[in-house]
């Protein structure tokens, strides 16, 4: 059986999470969104209690990742996802306030699939998220291996 795509949103700021969710919904994204508000929660959701990632086997997962988390760097989570035998195929969208060129480069280097900056200008912010939501329609999202 096939599962619908689940969006795992790793975001410590509740407000940001609400705004992102709102704009995804406005773009017509109806998928389940799981909000993970710190690094530890994110790791346990993604890799399961045994830490292997097998818990998500067969599920199509899209990860929205903020880099500035209170307990760890999002970069470390990205690295772990892309090194994991089950999750490495899951697309990771880095969604963060950092627009540092070297940081962006580093994320792509580590295998992030899309890097989106959160602008303070809300029109641009809403646009970016909504366009990304529409992009999700045409995206094929693989199941975790």
């Amino acid at each position: 059986m096939t599962y619908p795509v689940v969006i795992a949103m790793i975001e410590d700021d509740e407000g940001h999470a609400r705004l992102i969710e709102k704009n995804l919904r406005r773009a017509g994204v109806h998928n389940e969104i799981v909000i993970l508000n710190d690094g530890a929660n994110a790791l346990s959701y993604l890799f399961g209690p045994d830490g292997s990632g097998a818990v998500n086997k067969g599920r199509p997962l899209l990860v929205l990742l903020d880099l500035n988390l209170p307990d760890m760097s999002g970069i470390d989570i990205l690295k772990r996802i892309k090194e994991n035998e089950h999750l490495r195929v899951s697309p990771v969208v880095v969604l963060t306030t950092t627009d540092d060129k070297s940081e962006i480069q580093r994320c792509y280097d580590l295998g992030c699939n899309v890097y989106v900056t959160k602008p303070v200008d809300y029109e641009k912010f809403a646009n970016a998220i909504q366009q990304f939501g529409m992009f999700m329609y045409v995206m094929q999202i693989p199941e975790a291996i």
């Binding site: 940001h16 950092t98 912010f125 809403a126």
Partner: peptide, 17 residues
Amino acid sequence: SHDLRSPLVNIMGFASE
């Protein structure tokens, strides 16, 4: 600069909402 920007996203976002 990054930590200050984060709450601004919210203030701007919810003011616009």
